[in-house]
Nucleic acid binder design. Structure first.
Lengths: 164, 164
DNA sequence: ACAGCACACTTGTCGCTACAACCCTTCCCG
DNA sequence: CGGGAAGGGTTGTAGCGACAAGTGTGCTGT
């Protein structure tokens, strides 16, 4: 716990990151909530399911891909199920486990919400950065996540965000 | 709304950022909550007050420096006041306004919480990055914040995070 | 001098997340 | 093959943030 304080450059970087941490989630949530009645996290859950084989995933795997705890995911999926966007059913392979499958309306909801969301991400994150900075951001994210999640279990391998 | 999808590089960067957005706040909150009984936002509020002249700021200015909305700040300051860490009193210059001043116990609380917090920030953000990446992160943060907060009113000018 | 509007908050309510139990199933090992 | 530990998931509760009013003050113009 013998910690030196941050120098001016480190401080500047941290302040900026803290501000982004504070402001960006609100912007993402607001747009999706207004245009699709979804939280950013809701959207992420539906998006991950939409790209899974059979549009189905086990809760644990879904939690991993969305960087969420299991209790949080369970609550969210309950609400989504109540709205008919997702269906839960017991996993045949392991009777402890539960599968979540995207329903037809759920699929339509993602398709409908995706363009506006991608537009928001472009507008607030991608467009203001140069190509170089995009790559730098990816590397920085990797480095930080390695510390946040040493086991490497989180930090989804999300390769097809751009699927229509 | 004629939005092209994200290409692979943009996607990778965004996924990483989204993961950091999801995981980092939890880590910061957990450490401060466990060791000092404070939210990260609570800490930020107290820290900004501790560096203000007379350890006093108007609510609006405090909200600006902490990237918060006024309703949110009002609730948080109410709770902090209830714990005796902050005191509110009417601003003499403008009878619409309210000033918030850090109390003695509030000052001690920040001093007590600071080392552990800085340690956490080091561990999860500063240490995993190279010196170059620190500067890149600052530039990236600046660029994004320009879009998030076009008026430039937010995004605190936080120059003395390192005061002991 | 007074209408009208903008500003600086405060309060109330609702929804979401974290944390801590809790239950059932599977695995491990003697 | 039985008993304990670990894995997978749900539920309950408390606390925080967003949004939408509501109150009172200051500014502007005519």
């Amino acid at each position: 716990m013998d910690t030196p304080w941050l120098d001016r450059r480190q401080l500047h970087a941290w302040i900026r990151l803290a501000a982004v941490l504070e402001l960006l989630p609100g912007v993402l949530d607001a747009q999706l909530r207004r245009d699709a009645g979804l939280t950013h996290f809701d959207y992420y859950v539906l998006a991950m399911l939409s790209e899974a084989p059979g549009r189905t995933l086990r809760m644990t795997e879904l939690a991993r891909q969305t960087n969420a705890t299991l209790p949080r995911l369970s609550h969210v999926v309950s609400r989504l199920e109540g709205r008919g966007l997702v269906k839960r059913f017991p996993c045949p392979d392991d009777r402890r486990a539960t599968n979540a499958r995207l329903t037809g309306p759920g699929w339509e909801k993602v398709q409908e919400a995706a363009p506006g969301h991608v537009d928001t991400v472009r507008q607030h994150v991608v467009d203001p950065l140069t190509d170089e900075q995009i790559d730098q951001l990816a590397a920085i994210g990797d480095a930080i996540l390695t510390r946040l999640d040493p086991s490497g279990t989180m930090a989804a391998t999300y390769t097809r965000y751009d699927e229509g």
